[in-house]
Amino acid sequence: MNDIIEAVDIKKYFIKRKFFFSSKKEEEKAVDGVSFTVPKGKTFGLVGESGCGKSTVAKLVVKVLAPDSGSISVRGDADIVFQDPFSSLNPRMTVRKIIGESLFVRGIKKDEIERRVKETLSTVKLGDSDVLDKYPHQFSGGERQRIAIARALIRRPEVLVLDEPVSSLDVSIQAGILNLLKDLQEELHLTYIFISHDLRVVEFMSDTVAVMKSGKFVEVASREEIYASAKDAYTRQLLESIPEI
């Protein structure tokens, strides 16, 4: 079996109070019975509008959250790259410390960490050695996102969850990051879960696409099928909303 990720009917509910003092508790079904599998080396695209639950799925895959029911198994490590390159890097840590942190807490020696940090930085094309002692605020958005990618890759995970990785970047910078992600996938045989609200970007990156709404998948199909002949009405509505050049 070639599947690296297998999710079976996962559900995640959040409990919210209706008002500040109310005793009535409302259940918010962030993820309401979602199943999917992702084979090695492929990209599973997850598209939907804000509030549909796609970020919750991301957190479930990297085990920051545990599902309330159902199961999700990943054969190997999974790491994550977030949307906002400004808040996803600790403003008070140097690049060296940020990227090397996950190695440091596993007891790896300083020299080895240094070597691997440099190596990973050059895979994300930030190979300049004086990058290491700088702080996040000294970099542009695109560079920060590369740092975030380096941080996620340093332990050589099987899976990378990309939660709107280019949505906060300028259009011309987006292209560079998307190209980089594709190259890395080939080089390192990575499996991706690529999340975005932008259908065009999801189409560009993914092999299989799932359209999500209110915690459920309304349609899951290969990229070609979704974009050429979507069956679900919501999917078609999303496709029609895309401004065309």
Binding site: K59, V62, K63, V64, A78, D79, I80, F82, Q83, D84, S87, S88, L89, N90, E101, S102, V105, R106, A148, R151, A152, R155
Partner: peptide, 16 residues
């Protein structure tokens, strides 16, 4: 903040 989530994903212990 995302950098805290990131640390949790990477297995950084809570105290740290």
């Amino acid at each position: 903040r995302d950098f805290v989530y990131s640390a949790r994903v990477q297995g950084v212990p809570n105290g740290r």
